[in-house]
């Protein structure tokens, strides 16, 4: 049992990482295909950096992700705070339901309905529509990341601050926001991930003049294999791996230290 379990885990890990390493391996294949490996080359990496169109798209993707997650985080903070301070639990429940519609809705529905919306509002498809769409689908997740932190907060903290003479804005900036900071960071991080990971919604609202990486890759992939995609994916994987590992080890080191005390 123990042994078969370990074996199963190892097989699953191999399967889960296989596509990523498969792409990385052939990104160095001079033959230009994803089967027979001919000889080692950096050509595809070079051509990614020389391809100015691809570089523009890469910058687009990163800017869209950053702008949309910052805005979504700000609106999300407002949303979570107002939900938390709302007196009527009925209204809160229905607002939360609306919030959740966005989270559970399939990407295709979000994409298609935003396409209709932008056309209806006369917003032309391009950078603006993509950023708006990304902000829109990131807000509910930010709200859901912050809200539990607000409920975890000890309410007597607010009373104590008020007792000590703090004004509402001071309470917000000095007491509430520091308390929910982990939630805000998690929300921002999730929004960033959602934005970078999105394909379907962007696909519906990019239009012809503007593109983000996932939409571009889809277009390239439909035409068959292009090892530039391999090179891009390998670089993305390495960047993601570095960031995530740093984040993971920083966060676990903290908990280990805390654990040592007990």
């Amino acid at each position: 049992m123990k042994l078969t379990g370990r074996l199963f885990l190892i097989i699953m890990l191999i399967v889960l990482y296989l596509p990523i390493f498969y792409l990385a391996y052939y990104s160095f294949n001079s033959a230009g295909t994803m089967n027979e490996f001919e000889s080692f080359t950096f050509d595809y990496y070079l051509s990614v950096f020389q391809d100015s169109r691809l570089m523009v798209i890469l910058m687009n993707t990163i800017s869209v992700a950053l702008i949309s997650s910052v805005v979504a985080t700000i609106v999300g903070i407002c949303g979570a705070l107002s939900l938390y301070f709302l007196k009527s639990s009925k209204i809160r429940a229905s607002l939360l339901n609306i919030n959740n519609i966005m989270i559970v809705s399939p990407d295709v529905i979000i994409g298609a309905s935003f396409l209709i919306l932008f056309t209806f509002l006369g917003i032309s498809l391009g950078s603006v529509s993509v950023i708006l769409a990304h902000i829109a689908f990131s807000i509910p997740i930010v709200v859901l990341m912050i809200l539990p932190k607000l409920y975890e907060m000890n309410t007597s903290l607010l009373d104590a601050a008020r007792d000590l003479g703090a004004t509402p804005s001071l309470i917000l900036s000095r007491v509430v926001l520091p308390q929910i900071k982990p939630g805000i960071l998690a929300g921002f991080f999730m929004a960033l991930t959602y934005s970078l990971d999105d394909f379907a919604v962007s696909f519906f609202v990019t239009g012809s003049g503007f593109s983000v990486l996932s939409v571009e890759i889809y277009a390239m992939a439909r035409q068959g294999i292009s090892l530039e995609i391999n090179a891009i994916s390998t670089m993305i994987f390495l960047i993601v791996l570095t960031i995530v590992l740093i984040y993971y080890f920083l966060s676990t080191r903290k908990t280990v230290k805390r654990g040592d005390l007990s």
Binding site: P19, S214, I217
Partner: peptide, 15 residues
């Protein structure tokens, strides 16, 4: 691996 765009992984399966 979820942090890698789904599209890239799908593309790998084409190969």
């Amino acid at each position: 691996p979820t942090w890698i765009n789904i599209l890239l992984k799908t593309y790998a399966f084409i190969g």
